[in-house]
Design a binder for these strands. Structure first.
Lengths: 334, 334
DNA sequence: TTGATGTGGTAAAACGATTTACTATAACCA
DNA sequence: TGGTTATAGTAAATCGTTTTACCACATCAA
């Protein structure tokens, strides 16, 4: 069974292709097609189950009603949840989402952008990698709406939606200090994006503001792409070699590795050791005792991203870039 | 900056469009294009950064090098991980993946299939929903490779890759019985797909084989699309009204809700209550005590799916359907 | 009666590639 | 010599839409 084309419909209805096209695209009235013809054609379309070929349509119009979403790793629960929320919201507005993971790898990210470009996606939502600046600038030059989220790039002017990482991190450390903690460690990654450096800056600033000294040996920077076993080893070393009474994990997957370490070395979380994890995860709520976390407002981030994107898509002129910083909240559990 | 077309390259190189196309598609040799021309054109392509328009290409060739992946919910860690693995493997073979979630909703699933169809995806990987039989049959009639995974549909002949749910569930119950448990509950969902019914059958069969009676009031079927709060309420009721010394949760998200309940009603997991969760999750390893789980071999499932798919894609003739059942393993933790 | 305006529609170009069928010349060889 | 084959390449059709420019006829106002 060959798939039907607009031509088949035109033949069946005994009208021109043009007429069918106008009807499909809701331009019938405006193009003064009679009510009778509209009805007839619509009936035939309905009965035959004809669906326009989106590829042909995209080729002609240059757009696709598709939004490309590029994240670091779709299997990370933070991104998976954001992706799902964005997908839902976009879907309701008639846009489809296609997504892919960069694995924090510039080349892969560039390839993805190229793939999306050659598929003529209408807009991009990107959680960027350092090194992608030029590619993103080209998209913007091309007049494609681009929204960065989760992490910003200093050297590129674009729309951005993200949490206030500095202040969330600062508050976390403040809360440790309020509990009387003095030996506060930070386990973070070595990826050089604003989101991560801000968390680091917040940590540092809070220490200094409260008269504590910043000690390099209490900060562990895990190499991004390494396997979990090595991460666990490094964290284990940190805990074995330093006296630590509080620790902030800068990402949820680091916190998970960290909790595994604590479990294995039988270090109890509680009075003698406080833990805060960045980005919530089911495991933290269920953990005994509950693990305090910095919660990013996923729903709000997704909604803001989509809103920004749609306003760009629907406006003829180029809108000024917006940076939306949404507060993250510290959830204390125990 | 307008994007370049094959015509621009042809003009620059002073050859015909045909020649450029042959070179791009590696058919230069076969079509006897001289080495000199090949070099020249390749240089120009390289320098100009020309990338073929995939939309035009798809329109002409009728395929897209894209595989459509349809899952229940991309934010569920099981699907997110499978998706990521499939994405990686497909990517290495030159295929891109686009994915979307059905939310276990037939209409949404149908819409997704239609969207993929009109984008001419080359093949489909589907974790199906009951009610999708006819749509899947149409894809197969259309000669598109289709692989079902995670769940099978009885009324449709297709390739299928999944774990041995019956036996995993049976073994879980066996292990409870070996520990001397007698009041064994099952918390499952009401979605009517083979995967879920098999888990239920395994539960039932094991009870009967070991001389225990199947008691309906120990089986809780949670309505699929309900919010977590109601789920928690129902599970709480189950634990409050029945004497239970072991429980099997048929999905990881149900187990997470269940663990929240146990935590809130302060029921300790251990000697007096054993728990097994279906599909692993970070939270289970970290939980104190560790939660035993049925682990599906994600890597193997993904690999099998892709292998099956690629063999279909590359074979001219239609291959017979295959059903690959992969054993799941019970991981005992405490 | 003429020019403008409205109504109801269509033919054909365009989007950017792939692919089929063709041409022109050279080389070969019997 | 002429017929065949190889070499090097191209023109044009095609995929399925959207959109521009146009046509034919009717109506209306001046």
């Amino acid at each position: 069974m060959k798939t039907l084309s607009i031509k088949d419909i035109a033949v069946k209805a005994n009208v021109s292709i043009t007429t069918v096209s106008f009807i499909i695209n809701g331009k019938a009235k405006e193009k003064s097609i009679s009510e009778a013809v509209i009805k007839k054609v619509e009936k035939i379309i309905e009965e035959s189950g004809y669906k326009p070929n989106q590829i042909a349509r995209s080729l002609r119009t240059g757009n696709s009603n598709i939004i490309g979403l590029i994240v670091e790793d779709i299997s990370n629960s933070f991104f998976a949840k954001i992706a799902r929320l964005i997908e839902d919201k976009a879907y309701k507005r008639g846009y489809k989402i296609i997504y892919s993971s960069t694995e924090n790898n510039v080349e892969k990210a560039q390839e993805l952008i190229n793939m999306f470009k050659s598929r003529k996606v209408d807009a991009y939502i990107i959680s960027p990698v350092k090194g992608l600046e030029e590619d993103i600038r080209m998209l913007i030059n091309d007049n494609k709406p681009v929204i960065l989220f989760d992490r910003n790039l200093r050297d590129v002017q674009a729309n951005y939606v993200g949490a206030n990482h500095f202040s969330a991190s600062y508050q976390s450390i403040e809360s440790f200090i309020a509990q009387g903690k003095r030996n506060i460690a930070l386990v973070t990654t070595d990826i050089d994006v604003q989101q991560i450096t801000e968390r680091f800056e917040g940590y540092k600033k809070a220490l200094l503001d409260y008269g504590l000294t910043y000690r390099e040996e209490l900060v562990l920077k895990i190499h991004f792409n390494q396997n979990e076993a090595s991460t666990i080893d490094e964290i284990k070393m940190l805990f074995n070699s330093e006296k630590i009474d509080a620790v902030l994990f800068a990402t949820n997957y680091l916190a998970i590795s960290g909790l595994k370490v604590l479990k294995s070395i039988k270090k109890k979380i509680g009075a003698e050791l406080s833990v805060i994890a960045y980005d919530d995860h089911e495991a933290f709520e269920l953990h005994t005792p509950g693990i305090s976390t910095v919660q990013q407002p996923l729903e709000e981030i997704a909604e803001t991203v989509i809103k920004l994107l749609l306003s760009q898509l629907s406006s003829k002129s180029i809108l000024p870039n917006q940076e939306v910083i949404i507060p993250a909240t510290l959830i204390i559990r125990n």
